[in-house]
Simulated assay, not measured.
Amino acid sequence: MKTYDYIILGAGAAGLMLAYRMANDMFFSDKSVLIIDKFSNKGNDRTWCFWEESTGEWDKLVSKTWSHIYFGGEQFSKTIPISSYQYKMIRSEAFYTSLWKTINEKPNFTFVEDGVKYFTELENKVEVITEKGNYLGLKLFNSLPNTKAYSQQEKYPLIHQHFVGWVVEVYEELFDDTTATFMDFSVAQKGNTRFMYVLPIDKKTALFEYTLFSKTLLEQSEYEDAIKDYLKKKKITEYKVLETEKGNIPMTSFKFSDLNSKHVLNIGTSGGWTKASTGYTFTNTSKKTNKLISFLKAENDLSKFHIKSKFWFYDLIFLDVLANHNDEGATMFTSMFKKANFKTIFRFLDEESTLLEDLKIIVSVPPKRFIQAFFKRLFFIR
């Protein structure tokens, strides 16, 4: 049986981005890389959004940008010009097509359309067992979900960011396509943290996404009814639903690095690359895959690809508060956007902020719950 230098399980954002970076780096030109996924063509199964200053690596794939964001809370609402930043959107089909084009040009890359059953670590390699056969690799990068790892433990809270979205087309030019609605908390909270997220693609087309940060999911009809009610409140009564999407992103500070080993590295959401306190993944994945490429040139032990930072602890405290006081999420976010500069917020969420900027964020949120959560974690009290 052939032994590959690298096996990548999953050809979503993380797996494909890692393969793409390998394909563009001469260091890996003599390395054999196997990618395994059930589907080679996933189409527009994802929409990724992120903020960025000026131009960026993925600009050629960006389908829409916004120069303003709207935040709507009970005590504070504002349309915010984000000046040097832009809020950017990438549709997954364009992303997949572009990256596959580069990867497919490299003869040392192989793709197998197959379903993975499990993998097992041997003495100096990893064996992957699929529905159609077995494969051996010296190193394995796994982006396939292992929900049991974080859902069947109690040390770290798990909040679901779950949503249903409709791409809606109207018959008149009703939308301001320069402004993305970041969070609109005007929807009924019902004991949770609930908001509408709206991305106007043009003046007649927009994505309306009903989103929750909560421990439990809803029935499909509840999400859809909330979107209908929001459209009605905005006096949008005649429209056509062009596309629908749904998702569930885990928000947890579970130590995913504990699942890694010398020969196996979990990547993407399965590796904890999703920003725990927000659910944003694309920017983190771009940064992490860049760092991983540099790491692979110098190191052999994948378990060492982990750097614990202050932001992990910040996210942990935030999720502790959100898990125990889920009905206060709107108040926390509103206070932050009211008191802190948007650039400070963006830098903080991108894990690029200085200690002074961290303090500005910390004092911008209601202190009581965070102080309680901080001392409970500090002294290991649940």
Rank of each mutant, 00 (worst) to 15 (best):
I8T: 02
A11N: 15
G12D: 08
A13F: 06
L16N: 08
Y20P: 06
M22I: 05
M22F: 11
D30V: 07
S32G: 04
V33Q: 10
V33W: 04
D37Q: 13
K38H: 09
F39T: 14
W48G: 01
W48P: 03
E52L: 14
E52P: 00
E53N: 00
S54M: 09
S54Y: 13
S63F: 04
K64H: 12
Y70T: 10
F71V: 10
G73R: 06
Q75N: 15
I80V: 15
I82M: 01
Y85Q: 05
Y96P: 03
P107K: 05
P107I: 08
N108Q: 12
N108M: 02
F109R: 12
F109P: 01
F111M: 02
V112H: 13
K117P: 02
Y118P: 02
N124L: 05
V128L: 09
T130A: 02
K132E: 07
N134L: 12
K139I: 00
L140A: 07
L140H: 06
L144C: 06
L144P: 04
P145M: 10
T147V: 11
K155A: 10
Y156K: 02
H160S: 12
V164W: 05
Y171G: 13
E172I: 08
E172G: 01
L174D: 11
T181S: 10
F182A: 03
M183D: 12
F185H: 03
S186M: 01
V187Q: 09
G191C: 04
R194I: 12
F195N: 01
M196K: 10
Y197C: 05
V198W: 05
L199Q: 03
P200N: 04
L207S: 09
F208V: 02
T211P: 03
L212M: 11
K215D: 01
E222A: 15
I227E: 03
K228M: 13
Y230A: 09
Y230G: 05
K235E: 15
I236N: 04
L242V: 15
E243L: 08
G247R: 09
S261L: 00
T269W: 07
T274G: 07
T274W: 00
A276I: 04
A276K: 03
S277R: 10
S277M: 03
T281W: 01
T285R: 01
S286C: 09
S286T: 11
T289E: 07
N290D: 07
I293C: 13
S294L: 09
E299K: 15
N300Q: 14
F313D: 11
L316P: 00
F318M: 05
F318V: 11
V321N: 05
V321C: 09
A323F: 10
N324M: 09
H325N: 15
N326V: 04
D327L: 10
S335M: 13
S335C: 14
A340R: 03
F342G: 00
F348V: 01
D350I: 09
L356S: 12
K360P: 06
V363I: 13
F375E: 05
F379D: 07
R382P: 00
